[in-house]
Design a protein around this nucleic acid. Structure first.
Lengths: 226, 226
DNA sequence: ATTTCAAAACATTCATGTTTGTTTTGAAAT
DNA sequence: ATTTCAAAACAAACATGAATGTTTTGAAAT
């Protein structure tokens, strides 16, 4: 009797004191979202390969039994957690797109918003599950639709930009998608190259280049060179 | 895309009957490089998380005992395999840099070379071990120097470009590093967005933009906007 | 001969999924 | 209203399997 394995006692805010009377739907909702959030936080902090169900349960403040009750497998939990995460991100994106319509927003500010959004851990998380997607068709099938929604959200932003800059919409789309790809590549590089000045320079330079690219050749069709 | 029917045509048989007279050093060299290559090939095809020592040994055509004889742990083998891989990549890069000095090479061709190099599986492999680097300080410490060499190889190319375009060297460096980041982000995106036209458009557009960016404002200092 | 390299068998660890048991909710019946 | 019962939510322990590291045995080179 040296120690009683009373888990969930000292980890994060205890779930027990949430309220004595909770409806069933509330209970499931609370624990599943707690598991989702714990999953994504641990994915960011420790990595997908170190993401064990016990760690998730512990962080979420529930038992492993509860976890297995709500999710058939570790893989399913992770897939749904990512889905949940991406859905929330999409909403953030659409909210910004709506804000843009009301207020005047220049491209530099848009770049800043996207950079802040991506570099704040979001793309590190993406880098965790992207390799898994490459080798897991079912996960890929599950995430492709949400990803498409994300791209739609971006396109909504792009089209606003195209309107204001009198740039060919399709071309504007390409250029702004480049922005996203650039950011992805930059964030990926931060892992092996710790050099804040390097990234700051690149970001400021790109913000200067962007309006130039968007204004030039409003009518000139892209010559199909090779 | 990824075809290497070159040396790994036969998986298992060749080791024993390879040659009756091999010096000790040769034996170790052959098996270790066989293990390195098997490691990297499997990392690309199956992913780091599915990379087991038994699979590596099998693919390399040696026993697991041989593997553990030469490497203290799975982690060490993987670390050295990546190191080996990056060293080979650096040599390829430097060879290209030298070729550039002799022949006239325009930026479009440089972009094509880099894109081909990266998109031919190299960056997929990077995406496999990058998350691990994030959570494994010792691996990071081991790879940072080789990565730095890689950046040096790129800078060698960049400086040649700067000479020919009469562009501020530092600015040329930033723009060309953007190119690399752009490519990284594009390749990462291919995993969840299978849309060849999308990437082709982006690549051709960027090749058109590149000379414009490199020629403009040879002396204009970057104003601290925003 | 003795040192190095390679193969096979063994042991350990660890995370998952499974099973069994307990508590809480919700609703029908009295 | 209270009681009773069923189903869902939660908890804890067990068992399987896979992968790593270790030890033992055998072969090839100096």
């Amino acid at each position: 009797m040296t120690k009683e394995p009373k888990d969930s006692a000292n980890i994060s805010p205890p779930r027990k004191s949430a309220g004595p009377k909770r409806t069933q739907a509330q209970r499931t909702e609370e624990t599943t979202t707690a598991l989702f959030e714990a999953t994504m936080e641990l994915m960011l902090s420790d990595g997908l390969s170190r993401l064990t169900t016990q760690a998730i349960a512990k962080k979420a403040g529930v038992s492993r039994g509860a976890l297995t009750h709500h999710f058939q497998s570790r893989e399913e939990l992770i897939a749904e957690a990512i889905h949940h995460h991406l859905t929330a991100l999409n909403e953030k994106l659409l909210a910004f797109a709506e804000t843009m319509q009301r207020n005047e927003t220049e491209v530099g500010a848009i770049a800043d918003f996207l950079w802040k959004m991506m570099s704040g851990g979001v793309f590190y998380v993406t880098l965790e599950y992207l390799p898994e997607v490459r080798h897991n068709e079912s996960l890929k099938a599950r995430l492709v639709p949400v990803t498409k929604e994300f791209h739609n959200g971006l396109e909504a932003i792009w089209s606003h930009v195209a309107e204001k800059t009198s740039c060919d919409p399709k071309q504007a789309s390409v250029i702004l998608n480049m922005t996203m790809c650039l950011f992805r590549g930059m964030i990926a590089q931060t892992i092996l190259r710790d050099d804040p000045d390097y990234y700051r320079d690149m970001l400021t330079q790109w913000k200067q280049i962007l309006p130039v690219l968007l204004q030039r050749e409003a009518g000139a069709p892209p010559s199909s060179s090779n």
